[in-house]
Write a protein that binds this DNA or RNA. Structure first.
Lengths: 128, 128
DNA sequence: CGGAATCCAAGATGATACTG
DNA sequence: CAGTATCATCTTGGATTCCG
């Protein structure tokens, strides 16, 4: 491929760490690309939401999975959870700056799929 | 579709179809963001690979899951599978133009994670 | 309302053995 | 080499119930 340590370092920096089984990025990737993680991030790109708002917006997600996903993404520093000590409870979820960053990437992915959906479906049917 | 609302159509086109529970894009998204789907796409962004090459490159993926993932992505039109009728068998996998398109998006996501990994880990530890 | 806890069904994943 | 088949297991996901 190329020279000594500078070349190797450059290569690592450029990409490919996710393909390292030990790299922590692989874990983060799992959280982000999880079934509901993607949709939560996309939904929150439009702004702050309450728990039930997210549930309705995403659709067909159980309370359990939504709660679990939110906690996961909160631990990774992508989501900020603000709880107001009122009754009935009021909790708001929003993206941190970090969350907004990854949200853009995820949105890039989902937007691409939506835009190219016709081509994809066409490709699927070619083989059937 | 009903035909009296251009505004609604515009909104749908802009984004948010993945948040529609019925939209086929949600299925595609699932394939692409699957545990191994992401890694396969990233790996293939570097060029054509054989089955065993992919397995080694991705690491810790069972034959079964790799085969299953490859078939899935092939059906979606993202991957081209070329089999040479020789013995021992020789099969090559590569990205279609469509696959390259989504590969770029996925790579954008993985690259972002790798670049921001320090920040993410820092954010995680802030809460611990 | 926003969850936590529990139980249960279903699907994802893996290890192994086998085949063309 | 590139899978397929089988079985065992582990994780997901959902429904339900209860609580602050």
């Amino acid at each position: 491929m190329s020279g000594k340590n500078t070349g190797k370092l450059a290569e690592i920096m450029r990409r490919g760490e996710v393909l390292s089984t030990e790299c922590p990025s692989r874990e983060i990737l799992k959280h982000v690309t999880s079934q509901w993680g993607v949709l939560v991030l996309v939904a929150l790109m439009e702004g702050t939401h309450r728990f039930s708002e997210l549930r309705r917006k995403i659709g067909r997600v159980s309370e359990k999975m939504l709660a679990q996903t939110l906690q996961q993404l909160e631990r990774d520093g992508f989501i900020r959870r603000v709880s107001y000590p009122v009754v009935p409870p009021h909790v708001e979820y929003s993206l941190t700056p970090l969350g907004d960053g990854i949200g853009r990437q995820v949105e890039g992915l989902t937007d691409w799929i939506e835009i190219n959906l016709p081509k994809i479906i066409e490709a699927q049917q070619m083989q059937a």
